[in-house]
Design a protein around this nucleic acid. Sequence first.
DNA 1: TCTTCCTTTGCATTCGAAGTCAATTCGAAT
DNA 2: ATTCGAATTGACTTCGAATGCAAAGGAAGA
Lengths: 341, 341
Amino acid sequence: MAETKQPESHSTRATSYDVARHAGVSQSAVSRCFKQGASVAIRTRERILASARELNYYPNAIAQGLITRRSNMVAIIISNLTNLYYPEVLAELTQRLSAQGIRVLLFSLAAESDVDEVLDQVWRYRVDGAIVAARLHPEQLAAFADRGVPLVLYNRIGEGIPVASVCCDSVSGEHALVDGLVASNHQNFGIISGPSDSYVGEERVEAARRRLQQLGRSCLIVRGNFDYASGDAALRELMRMTDQKMDAVICANDLMAIGVIDSARTNFGLAVPHDLSVVGFDGVGPATWLAYQVTTIRQPVRRMTEAAVAMLLERIERPELSAEQRLFPGELLPGSSARLG
Amino acid sequence: MAETKQPESHSTRATSYDVARHAGVSQSAVSRCFKQGASVAIRTRERILASARELNYYPNAIAQGLITRRSNMVAIIISNLTNLYYPEVLAELTQRLSAQGIRVLLFSLAAESDVDEVLDQVWRYRVDGAIVAARLHPEQLAAFADRGVPLVLYNRIGEGIPVASVCCDSVSGEHALVDGLVASNHQNFGIISGPSDSYVGEERVEAARRRLQQLGRSCLIVRGNFDYASGDAALRELMRMTDQKMDAVICANDLMAIGVIDSARTNFGLAVPHDLSVVGFDGVGPATWLAYQVTTIRQPVRRMTEAAVAMLLERIERPELSAEQRLFPGELLPGSSARLG
DNA sequence: TCTTCCTTTGCATTCGAAGTCAATTCGAAT
DNA sequence: ATTCGAATTGACTTCGAATGCAAAGGAAGA
């Protein structure tokens, strides 16, 4: 019966003052109770915690954020969550950050043009840092530096501006695929790129194209947009473009590779990999399904997300840290959608 | 040269006081400028906005949240982002909320047991509301009510406690599937459930089982866990359990249906749907891929997320609103993985 | 018993913006 | 020129917790 007010008014949550009054101490004492390493007598702490429990008190993180200038929130900006690869990344990042006592403010972009609006909100919410898997203009990158918001790019790099980043090595990955295909004597290559605004898409295509050139193979390149349907569309286009028998298709991601495999079998009556070898990139779940078993490069998502989180936390503690760039090699998944040498 | 300090110290962002000083007005005036409908002379507003731009000022949402008791953040709690169905839901929800000027604080659970930790953070961050696609105990549901945090469940219901919710109708969906299968004279049914802690899983299985019973068909039920591999595992188990020729498998979601289809073809040499009909639930992307074309019930995700967001916003404005429950019928996607009557 | 030093504790201030209320300005009407 | 009301504006307080500083309490040593 220590309550001085009406039974309970839901609209008003208990504050540290309420707890202080209830426990017969000052507000400072309550605050110290919830900060580890602070000086509070054991008996006092117990009494306060008991009161807190009784009043259902939870420290207001908003108020804490205001006074400490630390929101304990990190922004995650992802351009297309429908990509099949990103949900896994997002889940990993979220769980790792949670484990470190950090909350995730999620921003998902429908169109790349929405970035500026999103950044506006990022500034307003005073997040402690950001992990971005979306394309940022140089000015946008500069804005992070200007405002002192630590930033780690995921599968992107600064392109001119030094930014911390975590990437899967497209070059070595594509080389492994191309080398394998060439070793088993494929002759006519098709490459299906990602959408024009995709950094990894361009990088992978460029790596594959260069390697083919080095090895004296020519190739046709058509544009895809990373989704299933565009695999089929791109394959049709490739077939139309060449009069020779195309025997290998390199796709900028697994989803398109799957689209190509389905289309090759169903629409062109081709046996994969006997008539046509198809390779992808990412190592998403469906790539290993029995119907596909895509030959691909699996990104080490766990290690990459772990690194991204570690790098971000480091930079939150020590903003002066350099713009390190960590490159992780992918792992070749042999699969059975391609004949590799 | 109105600056009084060093060129710029990144660590300290401009506040409304800085803008006020720069524009020669009071802090109140600056505040009013950023609140629409407030009384500010046009010329003053322009001068202030110019100063704000020059100083790179963005209102501190944390401070706003403290004074207005509105964080403009909503918690989204999702149990397993790897589910293939949820990324789509999450992307939709996030974009709809963003469009309403609301930010998303994302919590993804590795294990259901983490819910309490997550709720702890939800209370601390004073979110304006929550959308939950995870199983909550009655006490956890009650906690939302106690603390006056508006809540909308997604594909779950309160089970005893009145809670606002948005669901896809499992019963009518399963009835449509079962009726179709029975009409085309399937005899021996197998049902693959979801994990035991899945609400929708149980609901779908129960609906299918009842309907089969009504129609005088018997069935075997085995447990799955919603992922691809468990489709194969469950099919093997079903095959082991019966000596009759099973001719229809009803899966609690599409992913398992896909696993079953692959396994039936590859491991059992069965033709789908000639030897075995397989149906799923959800209507996720891969369900429509050429290799599968799963006969399934597609959830109207757009309408459901739209409703969830609308219901939540309503309840944030008017907390006294009743615990409405909105049930959306799914759409039968005929596909080609089952012979339907 | 009286210092001395260390541990606890409370007071008062601070973070940054919103909003109340009173003071001021301005224009129009008299 | 004077008055009145509406539109602007600023001073001040508030939200809830963290923290520097000083006061108080306690244990140990002289």
